[in-house]
Amino acid sequence: MTEYKLVVVGAGGVGKSALTIQLIQNHFVDEYDPTIEDSYRKQVVIDGETCLLDILDTAGQEEYSAMRDQYMRTGEGFLCVFAINNTKSFEDIHHYREQIKRVKDSEDVPMVLVGNKCDLPSRTVDTKQAQDLARSYGIPFIETSAKTRQGVDDAFYTLVREIRKHKEKMSKDGKKKKKKSKTKCVIM
């Protein structure tokens, strides 16, 4: 069974824990209790493949930012979460993405942009803004509501699919490099 290491990042209060708990335990946590770091595991079937999701729910508070490099190193894919009623959390996505790329030393890291709290009427981040940002990053965008469960499975499952595509691409690139290195030079 394939294991996928997913990391949920975003500013404090955007609903990272609520999304994760909704996926794992099928219930909505409405009281806000700032996370330092929590880890969850769940076995699911995605596109006919049974897999184990190892999900790291991270601290959004700035005082825990020193811990970010460590979990970013171990993560295979990242859910970059903002709240649709919090423009600052949307603007912060850029910083999370840049930090992930720096730590992973790669421009090509599996990510999904997630606009959470889409059940709320007080939207300050337009869907088109988020779609445009995701398009500019070359990553999928999904709106979710941890409260109603809308888009929750889709967000995590899409990230797994992005990781699969990335692994497939990397193995193809690896095979191309191996083929090239088999060419021999004969000096007579």
Rank of each mutant, 00 (worst) to 15 (best):
V44W: 05
E3Y: 06
K16R: 15
N26P: 03
P34N: 12
E49D: 11
S17W: 00
L56W: 12
T58M: 07
L23G: 14
A11W: 05
P34S: 15
Y40G: 02
A59C: 15
V9K: 02
V8P: 00
K42C: 05
V9H: 04
E3Q: 11
S17M: 00
V45E: 12
V29C: 12
L56K: 09
E62I: 07
V29S: 07
E37L: 04
G12Q: 04
D57R: 00
V9I: 13
D57W: 00
T50G: 11
V45Y: 06
G13A: 04
E62N: 10
Y32E: 02
G15M: 00
R41Y: 01
E37R: 01
T2K: 12
H27M: 15
G13E: 05
L56A: 15
D57Q: 00
K42I: 06
P34I: 14
E63D: 11
L23F: 11
D30I: 06
L52H: 09
G15V: 01
I55H: 11
G12W: 02
Q43I: 08
D47Q: 06
L19I: 10
G60P: 14
V44P: 08
A59P: 06
G15I: 00
E31F: 08
A18F: 00
Y64M: 11
G48N: 07
S17I: 01
S39V: 11
G15H: 01
Y4V: 13
A11P: 10
L23W: 10
K16E: 05
V7H: 07
R41M: 03
E37F: 06
S17T: 04
D57M: 01
E31M: 10
V8Y: 02
L19R: 00
Q25F: 04
Q43L: 08
I24H: 03
E49N: 09
T20W: 15
G48E: 11
I36C: 12
Q22E: 11
D57H: 00
S39C: 13
Q25C: 10
V14I: 10
R41T: 02
K42G: 05
E37A: 06
L23N: 14
A59D: 09
V29P: 06
T58F: 02
K5Y: 01
Y4D: 05
E3V: 08
F28L: 05
N26H: 10
Y64F: 09
Y32S: 09
S39H: 07
Q61L: 05
I55S: 15
T2I: 05
G12P: 10
S39N: 13
K42Q: 08
A18R: 03
D47M: 03
Q22I: 01
D47F: 02
P34L: 14
N26V: 03
Q43W: 06
I36P: 03
V29F: 11
D38N: 02
E62Q: 10
C51S: 09
D30K: 09
Q22A: 08
G10E: 00
G13F: 04
L6H: 01
N26Y: 07
I24F: 07
K42N: 06
Q43T: 12
Q61R: 02
I36L: 15
Y4I: 13
D54C: 02
S39E: 08
G48V: 05
Q43K: 14
L53W: 06
V8M: 06
E63C: 04
T20D: 11
E49I: 05
L23C: 14
Q43H: 12
K5H: 03
E3G: 12
L19G: 12
A59R: 04
L6W: 12
S17C: 02
E49V: 10
T20A: 06
K5G: 03
H27A: 14
Q25E: 05
I46K: 07
E3I: 04
G15Y: 00
T50W: 07
I36V: 10
H27G: 13
L56Q: 15
E63P: 08
L56R: 09
V8N: 01
C51D: 08
D38V: 02
E63I: 02
